[in-house]
Amino acid sequence: MGITLGPNQYGKAETRVVRVNRHGDHHEIKDLNVSVALSGEMTAVHLTGDNAAVLPTDTQKNTVFAFAREHGIASAEAFGLLLARHFVRSQPTVHRARVSVEEYAWDRIPVTGHSFVRRGQEVRTARVAHDGERTHVVSGLRDLTVLNSAGSEFWGFLKDEYTTLPETRDRILATVVNAEWRHTDLGTAWDTSYGTVRGLLLEAFAGTHSLSLQQTLYAMGRRVLEECPSICEVRLSMPNKHHFAVDLEAFGLDNPNEVFHAADRPYGLIEGSVLRDDVPAAEEAWW
């Protein structure tokens, strides 16, 4: 009985590339997850380990970033076409390229030209605790993904022998807002209140020139308390969704803070609460 190599393919999966198009103070964002699969004359690499026909998957990843800089990203379809045609035309051993693209949509926060909220992910939450005498109502939201493509810095931090992070005066600030807020008025119009708080959180995120995510967290909680007298405490948990500028120098390309790798993990996690001085903090059992 004979044994034969069947259909096969290989490639780099889930390259997260973010392209910021800067038109003065007005920015546009394309946020993609790109997967490449190549097939062709790959028998030798499977049977003998001969890599002569293989374009490394790391090269495929670099091509995604370089094309984002050189050609921009007009659409998911157009970018996929550019990549697929390139891999087949440039590599004689590659006969077919399949490029799969997921695009993550962002809506502009009206406060600035460089603040965005991710579309269609957030979940509204509510929790009520009652013991026959006392009642606490905690409203909230989770998975509200937001991004500032300007107006964020990070410098002046502690450094030791293990520190490699460079200081920056211009970075992308992206996070997933998970927030809860405690009410003192049980007669609140809940839907109206939720919309108001969500809007205030977005306005404060967009309107704060941030020197740290901690500063932004406090500004967001403070804005809610300033504008909503019936809310006495806000708790926020905000992961720092790192976006690293891709070094394209090896390909003869500059990168003036336009092409980024959206890292998945590990991430910084910033958590804190903001509360009124005249209202005691609730026992943890009530949250």
Rank of each mutant, 00 (worst) to 15 (best):
L83N: 12
D277R: 06
A44R: 05
P280I: 02
R69N: 10
P239V: 07
L55P: 07
G252A: 11
T57D: 02
A245W: 02
H86W: 11
E167P: 06
A204H: 09
V36W: 09
L202E: 01
S273Q: 13
S115F: 06
G151R: 03
R235Y: 01
E122H: 13
W181H: 10
H130G: 06
G268D: 09
N62R: 09
L173D: 07
Q214H: 11
P92N: 06
I270E: 02
G72M: 13
G132Y: 14
V177H: 04
L47I: 15
R124P: 01
G199S: 13
R223I: 11
G132Q: 03
I172G: 08
D107C: 03
R223M: 13
M42E: 01
Y218W: 12
E271P: 03
G113V: 05
A126W: 01
N240H: 14
L165N: 04
E283H: 09
T112I: 12
H26R: 15
G72T: 10
M238G: 00
L141I: 15
V20M: 01
D50H: 00
E233V: 00
G72W: 15
V259Y: 03
G151I: 14
R171C: 02
E153H: 04
I231D: 11
V176N: 11
N148V: 08
V20T: 00
V88W: 06
S193L: 02
L253V: 13
P280W: 05
L32I: 03
E284I: 10
R108Q: 06
D191V: 00
G221K: 11
E180R: 15
L225F: 13
A66S: 08
D31A: 09
T135S: 13
H183M: 13
T192V: 06
E14M: 03
D131N: 09
L47Y: 12
Q214P: 03
A129W: 02
R85L: 05
T59W: 00
E153R: 05
L165W: 04
H242E: 10
R69C: 10
S237C: 05
T125S: 15
H261G: 09
D278S: 14
Q215M: 08
L201R: 10
R198F: 02
K12P: 02
H46E: 14
D254Q: 11
V117R: 15
Q121V: 11
P56H: 08
L165C: 09
R16M: 07
A37F: 07
G6F: 06
V94P: 02
V45Q: 05
A150T: 10
I231A: 08
A245S: 12
T192C: 00
M238P: 00
V111Y: 00
K159G: 00
L236T: 07
A281I: 00
G40P: 12
V45T: 01
F79D: 15
T188M: 14
L211C: 00
P7Y: 01
Q214W: 04
H86T: 06
G113A: 02
V279T: 15
G199N: 12
N62I: 04
A126V: 14
